[in-house]
Structure formats: C-alpha cells, structure tokens
Computed example of a mutant assay.
Amino acid sequence: MDAFIVVMIFLTIQVFANKIISSSSLDKIQWMSLAGGIAVSYIFVYILPSLHHEQEDFGETAFELAMESELYFFGLIGIVVFYTLTKIAERHRHQKNATIKDRFFFVQIVLFFMYNTLISYIMFAADQDIEQLVFYGTAVGLHFMTVAHDMYRENSERYLLYGRYVLAAGIFIGWAVATFVPHSSVVLAIVFSFISGAIMFNVIKNELPSEDSAHLPTFVISAFTYSGITLLLKFFLDW
C-alpha cells in the first residue's frame, strides 16, 4: 500500500507537471535548477555507490568467472542506447514538415515510456524501506517532472493530448511488473545498471541548466543539501 501511494504521487506529477510548475511560487528557471541540482546529487550519492555495490554482489553470486566491470558495461550500454536513439529522433526535430515533426515527438514519447517503465520497475523492485522509497523518490519525482516539461516544450499540444498519459502509463506498468512479477537479483542488477547509464545521460543532457536558464543559488543549494541529507541518512540509518 505504501508503494502504491508513492506510485500514485508519481503519476500525479507526470500528468500535472506543468500545472504544478506554473502554480508554484518558484519560477520555471528555479524549478529546473532545483531539479537539476538534486538530480546531479542523486547520481553521485546514490546511483554510483549503488552501482558499485551491485557490481560487488554480482561478482559474488552471478558467475564463477565474473569480472569486475560487467555492470558498468551495462551502464555504458544504457548511455549509448539513449544517446543513439535521441540523435536519430533529433534528425527530424527541425523539419518543417508537420508529419515528420510529429513522428519525432512520437519516437521520443515511446523512448521515454520505456525509460519511465524501467525507472519505476527498479524503484519498486529494489529492497527499500518506505522511508528510503519516499526520500529517493523525491529525486525521481523531480526527474519525471523535468522529463514532462521537456516533452511539453517539444510539442505542447500532443503532449497534453496523449503524451503525458503514455509516460504515466510507463510508471504504472513498471510498478505493476515490480509488484506482481517474480524477478531475480541478476536481472535487477542488469536493469539497474542499464537505466543508471540512461539516467546519467538524460540528467547531464537535460537537467544541468545552461548559463542563460539557470538559477545558480538554487542549483548549488539543492545539490549540496540533498547530498548532505543523503550522507547523514546513510551514516545514521545504514541505508
């Protein structure tokens, strides 16, 4: 039930992200800087240490001839796959033909549907206490909000018409698979590594604010505040 409440919050964020941003006292630049700071912190204080831990466990339990970098390789695959698909889709971004531009947007929506599905699957399949799920879910929820905002900027009409619901469906499907389908530790480790690479790529590409669209104090404060709280919680609660 706790996980179901969290996934419903994720769905609400994904569907109503632009209304949440527009109705907030923070302006859009501050929102993006806040999300970017927390996302960067999330990579360095959660994803990279977790990837290292998963690699150690993977080497002990998966194969007798396991090396020391298999999961890092799957992370590399995640970066390369999303970079390649993004570049292929972007070829059609600036086309004047409306059909081609719509095709580009559709490819993006399908890509991020899979992205949301895998992130949600990892979030809810991992062995986490509800406190961990809520705390780390804050970073993930802001990341979903940033993805939603980027999709809205690409094609606001089609995003509001169907795009946001497709992305929300990815979150729900990921939760359902994690909850009702048995999974092995090896599969979880591989999926976590792959989607970690994809998250790193998307955060660096989309969430690090550019010079003309950054609120530097918000970015710096959010990055170090989230990092500090995470390190304290790891130290005192052994997360």
Results as ranks from 00 to 15, higher is better:
residue 48 L to K: 09
residue 85 L to I: 11
residue 117 T to G: 11
residue 35 A to R: 12
residue 136 Y to T: 13
residue 136 Y to H: 15
residue 147 V to K: 01
residue 144 F to M: 15
residue 95 Q to C: 05
residue 42 Y to H: 00
residue 136 Y to K: 13
residue 51 L to H: 07
residue 37 G to R: 11
residue 42 Y to I: 00
residue 40 V to S: 08
residue 103 R to K: 14
residue 133 L to N: 00
residue 128 Q to V: 12
residue 41 S to Q: 01
residue 67 M to D: 04
residue 84 T to Y: 09
residue 112 F to D: 05
residue 145 M to L: 15
residue 123 M to S: 02
residue 111 L to H: 13
residue 61 T to V: 06
residue 76 L to D: 03
residue 33 S to D: 06
residue 32 M to P: 03
residue 146 T to K: 12
residue 46 Y to T: 12
residue 122 I to Y: 11
residue 117 T to S: 11
residue 43 I to D: 14
residue 145 M to K: 14
residue 70 E to W: 05
residue 71 L to S: 08
residue 134 V to R: 05
residue 113 F to L: 15
residue 133 L to K: 01
residue 74 F to K: 05
residue 101 K to G: 04
residue 142 L to V: 00
residue 39 A to R: 09
residue 138 T to Q: 13
residue 131 E to D: 06
residue 119 I to L: 15
residue 132 Q to A: 13
residue 133 L to F: 01
residue 48 L to G: 10
residue 38 I to A: 01
residue 63 F to T: 04
residue 60 E to H: 02
residue 87 K to M: 09
residue 40 V to H: 09
residue 71 L to Y: 09
residue 125 A to W: 06
residue 132 Q to F: 14
residue 113 F to T: 15
residue 110 V to P: 00
residue 109 I to G: 04
residue 113 F to K: 13
residue 52 H to S: 10
residue 79 I to S: 02
residue 87 K to F: 03
residue 117 T to I: 11
